Simulated assay, not measured.
Amino acid sequence: MPQAIWNGVAIAKTDDTVIVEGNHYFPKEDVPAQFLKPSATTTMCPWKGVAHYYTIVAGGAENPDAAWYYPDPKPAAAEIKDRIAFWKGVKIS
């Protein structure tokens, strides 16, 4: 079962990830809200749409903009709606 680990804490675990461009997208309901702090950061992907970010909060530390999601992805990326992906030192195992 894939899990996302940062700062020694399992911040997400599921048997239902979608892999896009090498990134595991976890269902939002499998990432406890206590580990996510909204961020004002956004970026634009030409084929997925506008990405929004979260700062990860775990183990007494914060990892700014280390999680992202597409609240309204373009049709080509519809499979990642309501899913969260990670980077910036978050290990997927």
Rank of each mutant, 00 (worst) to 15 (best):
D16H: 10
V31T: 00
E29D: 10
V90W: 01
I80Y: 04
A4P: 15
T55A: 13
F35S: 05
N7D: 14
A40I: 02
H24C: 14
P64C: 07
P73T: 06
A10M: 03
M44K: 09
Q3L: 14
T14H: 09
E62K: 14
D30V: 01
A76K: 03
S93N: 12
K91G: 06
K28S: 12
V18K: 10
T41L: 10
A66V: 03
P38W: 02
I11P: 14
A77K: 02
G8L: 08
K13G: 15
Y69A: 09
G89A: 03
V18T: 11
T17F: 03
S93E: 13
E62F: 01
L36Q: 09
D15R: 09
W68I: 08
K13R: 15
P2V: 11
C45D: 07
G89R: 00
Y70G: 13
Y69P: 14
A4Q: 11
A33L: 02
Y53Q: 04
A51I: 05
F35M: 00
Q3W: 05
W47A: 14
A58D: 14
A67E: 09
K37Q: 10
M1I: 12
G22K: 02
P27W: 01
E29W: 01
V18I: 07
G22P: 04
Y25Q: 11
G22A: 12
P73S: 13
D16L: 06
P2Y: 05
K74N: 13
Q34G: 07
I80T: 03
H52N: 10
V18H: 04
V57A: 15
Y54E: 10
A40W: 02
F35G: 05
P38N: 00
D65T: 10
K91S: 08
G89F: 00
W87R: 02
P46T: 05
N63W: 00
Y69W: 08
I5L: 10
G22H: 05
E79Y: 03
D65G: 11
S39V: 00
A12H: 11
P64Q: 13
W68H: 07
E79S: 14
I80N: 05
A77M: 06
D65I: 07
A77Y: 02
K81S: 09
I92T: 08
A58M: 04
H24T: 08
V9N: 13
P64A: 14
K91Y: 00
I5K: 13
G49V: 00
D72F: 07
K74G: 13
I19D: 13
E79A: 15
N63D: 10
F86R: 12
A12I: 02
P75V: 09
I56Q: 07
A77H: 01
W68R: 10
W47Q: 06
